[in-house]
Amino acid sequence: MDLSLDGRVAIVSGGSRGIGRAIAQALADEGVRVVLAARTQDDLDAAAHEIDRTHPGHVLAVSTDLRDASAVTQLVTRATDHFGSVDIAVSNVIGHVIDANKEGSGPGAGTFLGTPSASYREEFEHLFLSAWFLADAVIPQMKHRRWGRLLNIGSGVAREPMKELPHVLPNTVRPAVAGLYRMLAKELAPWNITVNNLLTGSILTERNRSYWEWLAAERSLPVAEVQRVMTDVIPAGRMGEPTEMAAVATFLASEQAAHLTGQSIPIDGGINRHL
């Protein structure tokens, strides 16, 4: 199917690894010029090199701290100067991590009773403000061209917290991000700008693998046992691939999905079955 994305320009935050990288690759495969944004330059360069090999001149890597409003503005300016516009913005930022110095760490396993209030402030800056800054920086030019796609890579916990995985920080902030996206969807629909939120399930990323290792150590279980328990609750009977997240994101960015907006879509093999 021709998704009519050839020549569009996308910013993909968190685009150097995991789901973000898969989305960047999938968009590039459809002819989209992609701007990868993340904090670690080496990872960015590696991801950009990979995309550039198959799509020469279609990728730009910009080291950015998405929590910094002025840095996000600079990112959008650079992307626009380089490729002429920003048509698609993918907000893909992880929140609190177990060990911020350890690459690949998963979300912090915090409980309500064990998490001080200051952490909720930090999580809001990570997850909410980063999404807000990116949207705020690209909306004016999308409105001007009367075309745009905003996508947030959220999590299934925004809709249904998991008792087995006590992540009180993202559980608290992600619903607010989902609300933000629904509000933006309502406001921006007249300009043909769609705004959607993907609810991630268990996806086979490096970050999740290291998270399962951490969880296994915490619970004195073999890693395979942790993975088995987590897989058992997935009706599809398997974990998802980053490319499967990317496929949905790419479709939502397409011309064909112009009437699909304000949605929170679980991509989790059937875990979340709310009506």
Binding site: A158, P161, P166, H167, V168, T172, V173, P175, A176
Partner: peptide, 13 residues
């Protein structure tokens, strides 16, 4: 929405 999320997460605890 933040408080609703917190309330639902707190239930587990």
């Amino acid at each position: 929405l933040g408080l609703l999320g917190l309330q639902k997460a707190a239930v587990a605890d």
